[in-house]
């Protein structure tokens, strides 16, 4: 699906990435371009990057998924509970991860059902979902973090093969799968059609309910993969990890050229946008202008608004030309 306007936003992303890279080459070439720094960046972004892909799917379908963080934590908690309960055997890790993915799928199906069948607005469903899934997680853990996970579990988020972190492979694999789904499967086209115009999709014989449930299920599974990585990263599971990721993932997808009205956008833009934000965050760290991380929140918010406004203005200009 090649489209000119998307190429435009991808070009902008490349330029912005280049600007950050050049700026850092001038300001802190020694620290920024070191292997340790690159590695530390790679360890960070897959967690929320995978989540952002879920947000992307929901938004392309014409909805939104604000429950991703809740799903991530709940899946992590369920996995942790199973692993701890089974005494940390290697097989328990496999079962734990499978269970986590199942939790993500079930939560996603619930979202999809409420949205597609009961026709409750996606925003409301997933906002409720966030509360519900976090609530279940909180109920299971009774509050404090679950610790005592098997040592080998840490490997997913913290281990490396040679110099390359394992999470990078996981991230690339997930991106490849989602890319394939979005571009080379019937579902991938149907979800775009539904996001463009759900009425016309129905009249074209697309089963909107099925596509909606599918979308939120995949989104939920992506949330749970991210949950596995988060628990592995912290070596513990808790109901309120990663609470800032909701905004971050939204920012990523909007910045990556996904249209909030649905239908438009692609995986490439989102991946670039993930990289860009990680670069910005790391640059902030190295320049030591943001010890508390609050400046980052501020800049993210500002970026989100500026990018959206710029898109709107660009759209207006295009129309005026016609």
């Amino acid at each position: 699906m090649k489209k000119k306007n998307i190429d435009g936003s991808i070009l902008t992303l490349w330029i912005m990435i280049a600007v950050v890279l050049i700026a850092m080459a001038i300001l802190k070439p020694g620290t920024f371009y070191k292997m340790t720094n690159l590695r530390s960046m790679i360890f960070q972004f897959p967690e929320y990057g995978i989540m952002a892909l879920g947000m992307m799917l929901a938004m392309i379908s014409g909805g939104i998924d604000l429950s991703l963080v809740g799903i991530a934590n709940l899946s992590g908690i369920v996995a942790a509970k199973i692993m701890i309960g089974m005494g940390g055997e290697p097989v328990s890790i496999a079962i734990g991860i499978m269970a986590a993915l199942a939790v993500g799928a079930v939560c996603g199906c619930f979202n999809g059902f409420m949205i597609g069948y009961l026709k409750v607005p996606a925003m409301l469903v997933t906002l409720c979902g966030l509360q519900l899934y976090t609530g279940i997680g909180l109920g299971i853990t009774t509050g404090p973090a679950l610790t005592g996970l098997p040592d080998s579990y840490k490997y997913f988020a913290n281990g490396s093969i040679g110099q390359i972190p394992v999470v990078l492979f996981i991230f690339i694999a997930v991106v490849a799968v989602i890319y394939f789904i979005m571009n080379f499967t019937v579902y991938g086209q149907q979800v775009r059609f539904m996001g463009s115009n759900d009425e016309a999709a129905r009249y074209s014989g697309i089963n909107n309910l099925k596509v909606t449930i599918m979308t939120y299920m995949i989104s939920g599974i992506l949330g749970s993969i991210s949950g596995v990585l988060i628990t592995s990263h912290f070596n513990s599971a808790k109901a309120d990890y990663g609470s800032s990721y909701t905004l971050l993932t939204l920012l990523i997808v909007v910045l990556g050229g996904i249209h909030p009205d649905g239908g438009r956008g692609n995986v490439g833009g989102v991946v670039l946008s993930i990289l860009l934000l990680q670069l910005v965050a790391q640059a902030f760290n190295i320049l030591q202008i943001d010890p508390t991380g609050n400046m980052k929140t501020f800049v993210y918010g500002a970026l989100l608004i500026i990018v959206l406004c710029a898109n709107v203005l660009k759209g207006k200009k295009k129309k005026a030309k016609k």
Partner: peptide, 9 residues
């Protein structure tokens, strides 16, 4: 509204 996806090719 029912027949076409206006923004699509």
């Amino acid at each position: 509204t029912q027949g076409l996806f206006l923004e699509r090719s």
